[in-house]
Simulated assay, not measured.
Amino acid sequence: MNISGNTIFIPGSTSGIGLALALELRARGNTVIVGGRRAELLERIAAEHPGIDTVRIDTADAGSIESAAKEVLAKHPDLNVLVTMAGIMRVEDWHRPESFLASAESVVTTNVLGPIRLIAAFVEHLRTRPDATIITVSSGLAFAPLRATPSYNASKAAIHMLSESLRLQLADTSVKVLELVPPAVRTALLPGQETSEFAMPLDEFVAEVVTLLESRPDAREIQVERVKFLRHAEARGDYDQVVATLNAADPHGK
């Protein structure tokens, strides 16, 4: 995708990677709409960053997605980029079904059904734009599992294959499908992750992502260097070693 001149909607961007990316893309000359559940955060973002529009959306709620899509397209008929950023991560202990089932269902609803519903709400409009992009957000954990987060790993593997499949189906349209593959980044996705030495600093991650977007406009995946250890483990033939190393370093492991 071009790095400037777009109108971009990023649901799930009131904090963390989403907000940092929204601000950087705004600075690069894009119109950016931030979406999130909490009205007070949206109000603060709008006040602190004039020029950024905000829309309330709960990506775990199909009705909220439908309403937000109508609002975004009414205000921004030139929308040409959708970033399905919203996601949650939960530590689960599958020895005890009563402890993980509700959590697992929530992860799948937010991380898999959310992006599917978002894309369904916007794809018809995006097909009318001469140059449009859907950016999905998977994870290095789609390719090498973290023991403590089974449902999250599975949800991101699903997003990877969804991205691959949509790219094939939409190849005859103006819509490109680009998959962002983050490593662990210093955000509040899990308790303690914001200060974890294991995680990549947020500003470094976003800077590298934007550089890759700019330098590789025809890329299918955006992979910062730090995620390649996980992303290409199977292809390199060191998958077992990578999984062992990942889980040995995991502060949530048991």
Rank of each mutant, 00 (worst) to 15 (best):
I3W: 00
S4Q: 14
G5C: 11
T7K: 08
I8M: 08
F9I: 12
P11E: 06
S13E: 08
S15Q: 12
A20H: 11
R26W: 07
A27F: 02
T31H: 11
I33N: 04
V34T: 06
A39D: 14
E43C: 10
R44E: 15
R44D: 14
E48W: 02
H49F: 14
G51F: 12
I52C: 12
T54W: 06
V55E: 12
R56W: 14
R56V: 14
D58S: 09
T59N: 12
A62Y: 08
I65D: 11
A69C: 09
V72W: 12
V72L: 13
V72N: 12
A74E: 14
P77C: 11
V81Q: 05
V83P: 06
T84I: 07
I88M: 05
L101T: 13
A104N: 01
A104Q: 12
A104M: 06
S106L: 06
T110Q: 00
N111H: 04
V112G: 03
L113I: 09
G114E: 08
G114A: 11
I116Q: 04
I116V: 12
R117Q: 10
I119L: 04
I119T: 09
A120Q: 15
V123A: 13
H125P: 10
H125N: 14
H125V: 14
L126V: 13
L126I: 12
R129G: 10
R129P: 05
P130D: 14
T133R: 01
S139N: 03
S139F: 00
P145Y: 01
A148N: 09
T149M: 06
P150K: 08
S151R: 10
N153S: 07
K156Y: 05
K156E: 09
K156D: 11
A157F: 04
H160K: 08
M161W: 07
M161L: 10
L162F: 06
S165D: 08
L166S: 12
L168Q: 13
A171R: 13
D172A: 15
S174A: 14
S174C: 11
V175P: 03
L180D: 00
R186E: 01
T187I: 06
L190K: 03
G192D: 07
E194P: 02
E197I: 14
F198C: 02
M200T: 05
P201C: 05
L202C: 09
E204Y: 02
F205L: 02
F205C: 05
F205N: 00
A207S: 13
V209L: 09
V209H: 01
V210P: 00
L212Q: 10
L213Q: 08
R216W: 01
Q223A: 04
E225S: 01
E225L: 03
E225W: 02
E225H: 02
R226Q: 09
R231E: 02
H232L: 10
A235K: 15
A235N: 03
R236C: 00
Y239V: 03
Q241A: 15
Q241E: 15
Q241M: 08
V242Q: 00
V242R: 00
T245N: 04
D250F: 07
P251A: 10
G253P: 01
K254E: 15
